[in-house]
Design a protein around this nucleic acid. Sequence first.
DNA 1: GATGAATGAGGTTTCATTCAT
DNA 2: CATGAATGAAACCTCATTCAT
Lengths: 204, 204, 204, 204
Amino acid sequence: MKVKDEQKYDRLIAAAIDLLAAGGLANFSTTKVAKQAGIPQSNVYIYFKNKQSLLEAVFQATVHTESVAVAAAIDDNAELAEQLAMSIRALYDFALAQPAVVTALQVLTEDVALKQKFALKADDTANQKIQHLLTTGVTQNILQPVDLNLLRYFLTRPIFHYAEGRRHGLYSATTTSIDELVVMVMGAVLQPTPFQTWLQAQSE
Amino acid sequence: MKVKDEQKYDRLIAAAIDLLAAGGLANFSTTKVAKQAGIPQSNVYIYFKNKQSLLEAVFQATVHTESVAVAAAIDDNAELAEQLAMSIRALYDFALAQPAVVTALQVLTEDVALKQKFALKADDTANQKIQHLLTTGVTQNILQPVDLNLLRYFLTRPIFHYAEGRRHGLYSATTTSIDELVVMVMGAVLQPTPFQTWLQAQSE
Amino acid sequence: MKVKDEQKYDRLIAAAIDLLAAGGLANFSTTKVAKQAGIPQSNVYIYFKNKQSLLEAVFQATVHTESVAVAAAIDDNAELAEQLAMSIRALYDFALAQPAVVTALQVLTEDVALKQKFALKADDTANQKIQHLLTTGVTQNILQPVDLNLLRYFLTRPIFHYAEGRRHGLYSATTTSIDELVVMVMGAVLQPTPFQTWLQAQSE
Amino acid sequence: MKVKDEQKYDRLIAAAIDLLAAGGLANFSTTKVAKQAGIPQSNVYIYFKNKQSLLEAVFQATVHTESVAVAAAIDDNAELAEQLAMSIRALYDFALAQPAVVTALQVLTEDVALKQKFALKADDTANQKIQHLLTTGVTQNILQPVDLNLLRYFLTRPIFHYAEGRRHGLYSATTTSIDELVVMVMGAVLQPTPFQTWLQAQSE
DNA sequence: GATGAATGAGGTTTCATTCAT
DNA sequence: CATGAATGAAACCTCATTCAT
């Protein structure tokens, strides 16, 4: 089942991302993916076992792309809180640069029927780095002592939402800036005292 | 579109909610809705112009139910910050009590293809009450001075996410309590100083 | 089954004519007729036994309207050939004045499934007058000695076709005038010698 | 849309022609076509993009068949007027030999909703030949100086009408012969003088 | 491995007609 | 008589998946 022509494989993934971003899961079909990729319909089943399997691959690909973009933007030498702020801004930039990837990822993550069906690849180093950042933050009493999934939720979903809102004109830089969003997210994930500290560091 | 037999209308809405909650938009069909409601499929078109129109009705119904539940739980005499905290808890209770309604609402709100296609009914008084709360909060420099949509996002989505996580075992009361979630959300939406004030009021 | 509210009856007929003219039999339905007439769907079955019966009534109505218009325009004192020419021009004027009626009639007459299912009302005096004209013409060796139906075909269909062509820009007055069409039709229905005579009378 | 199994394609076209001839556009459906062709309904969409596209293919096929039959019967060495007379008789013979093809073509040509939606294939040589005949006739002052579409109308529709009338008993050889029809059509399309000339040539 | 063909199920919508009120 | 509701059939079209070449 694996990959003779890697170029076609990639084209299928890319087409699937575009399709998901444009119409959501409800309008997603192997037929459309193949057409968009310029590949015969039945070829989808050479590269993927079935529709579900294709979606899983899309999930892995988008998570990975996003993690890499975010991890790359983090300065390891900065304060932990500052590293988080950086990750938020990086995610925002990424969401503006690659809206389809982000939207596709959101579609897949949000879907009721697929929820938690997808297992994250354990060996994604970029992903691990971010995970490590959170663990450390909790241990050092900088971050709220809650489940990492919840922290991650606050650090991603609102940013996706805001980025999409900006792209579609729901938000504008004047009514709601990215700086304000960063403050809000930091206010949620940081413990009160580190939050104050971080705020003062910002205003200097 | 005048409806005599309101009972069937209601059954269709209820069936649609259940279906959306169970399978998302991708697995939603008028055929299934009708079957679930125990009604011939073509009857759906007596009560609704088309599929889209049915979804719109579901949207209105779920928004309304949720707004009512939340608005009812708010004590008008409490401090504004405290009213917000109440609304968060009310929303959480509602999400646990009526998970299907909340999930259906989320499915409809989150969908790429439908996004912002649905117009909120302007005359929903429960909804207006919450909107008013936010406006006042911003004017009085208690809430972050951002677009009301973004405030509302923070005040709903994370709660839905957490409630669903609790229901599915992703979160448990010991690793992450609702109290902690309330603090996080308040940290996001309140301005730093009112946040501090509110925190102290909590610990007393 | 017959007609309490004659106004609604007429509205249904008129709506049916418009519908047939706009979309042909393939897009004709009792649902659409009722909607166009602003009348509840099920009311169609008060005024007409069924769809077929409604179409039959439309047929009678359109044939009658057309016959009256044509018959009224014929000068009984003119030469027989000239009377025919008048009828051609009258039909053309009528087709331009009431395109929907003419098109609906054509749709009904041309349809394979209905063909010759409709019996012409025998008591239509306007219709009888034209029929009489043709009989006389054949008897007097002015018209070609063929079946009256065929004469009538030549005296109507090409005119409908031309009128519609004019309305839709297929023909224009400069490339093909109504005068030329009259000559062609007269050339078809008149016997050669009367045709020559008629032609000379024209040029004087 | 490349077709391997041309046999099924042809069967679909043939089934469509029969269906159109039997019931007109109003009773035409892909379901029925498929059933008549002995093929699953969804297979229609392997060979044709949609219903409209199937009808277009039927149109091309019938026009082509008819043009070929007519063109083949024309003796290039005969007088132009005589060639036209030949084409009329050829069309009549064709209409008797292949009534379904002719009726289907008429149904498609006459329909209000489809009118002028179908583009004639420019590369149909048989069709071109007839068109050339008409152009020449007009240039040489043999045919009436009108739009070619109108000439073509007179040279086809009445013949179809007559042939169908014969088949259904509306006309019989004794009341109205094909010879008489030829004279009528020639009287319509020829200019008066060539018409006289042609008539005399006939009686010799 | 690649591809066009095949297929049966399912989806949305419209319809003609009937019925109860 | 008028009308909204009801219904089952049928229409068009798309899909996921399999198969033969």
